[in-house]
Design a protein around this nucleic acid. Structure first.
Lengths: 134, 134
DNA sequence: CCCGCAGTCGACAACAGTTCTCACATGCTC
DNA sequence: GAGCATGTGAGAACTGTTGTCGACTGCGGG
């Protein structure tokens, strides 16, 4: 049975009032700073439960940290600036169809996919920022 | 000054004879297995030097492991069976163009992307295997 | 309203991948 | 060759994440 606990609700609430991607550790620190007593393990568990429920999206940063974000249930992909980390949601029905078709051609069923696009956003490019730090 | 050492040459050679993505640990294990004495730290250093030189591409797996491939490798994506782990390489020029175009529309430059397709392959589907273990 | 207990919590240990440290070895320049 | 900056490698340290286990607590039943 899945229980409705104070902690789980609290983690959920954090993502409701935050925008963009945030790491589990950041959420934990933020909650502790706000006077909310919660364990790090619990944050990880809650976050993973939310991912399982499809309420959060997770991706990995270049540094190997997992970051999470509440996103619309509609299927979409992410366009991430590798300099400032800004993220935009993009949709591509053509890609969905392509992935399904290619998988089907290889005899695969029950198909899902992950797609992330990385680049340098206009602002960072103007600022001369690239992958490397000045 | 950058020195030409046996170890650095050896790491470079490994990626020349391998295709696709491989982790630093895997490269290290492979070299040790081949009788090549080299330290793990050295593999990491060599790999990062190669990334800095633009000779290797690096991405992160979902498990948080960094994997590398030689840039000259033809760009392709993976179709992975979630039951048996079998992997097939697929290409989709349309997807490449789509990703570049979408990123461009958002003002992003220097664009790369990662795409993995997951499904159940024909054999596993016939065998009744699904995501969950029996 | 209270009980029982399965699901949950949280401090901490364990773990994996990666990076750092430092004494020692080794290319490169002269 | 000799000198010396640079690279090496074994292991420790560090980081993010997951597992452990005794204590705790929603929640349904009595």
């Amino acid at each position: 049975m899945i229980r409705n606990t104070r902690q789980r609700t609290a983690v959920n609430a954090v993502f409701e009032e935050l925008e963009g991607f945030h790491s589990a550790q950041e959420v934990h620190a933020r909650m502790r700073a706000a006077g909310d007593s919660i364990g790090l393990s619990t944050v990880y568990r809650a976050v993973q439960a939310l991912v399982d429920d499809g309420e959060l999206d997770s991706i990995r940063t270049d540094a190997g940290e997992a970051i999470y974000r509440r996103c619309s249930t509609r299927h979409h992909h992410h366009l991430v600036c590798r300099a400032c980390g800004r993220t935009e949601e993009v949709e591509g029905p053509a890609v969905e169809r392509w992935a399904d078709r290619v998988a089907g051609e290889h005899g695969f069923v029950d198909v899902t996919h992950t797609l992330e696009i990385f680049g340098t956003c206009a602002a960072c490019h103007r600022a001369g920022a690239t992958t490397e730090t000045p």
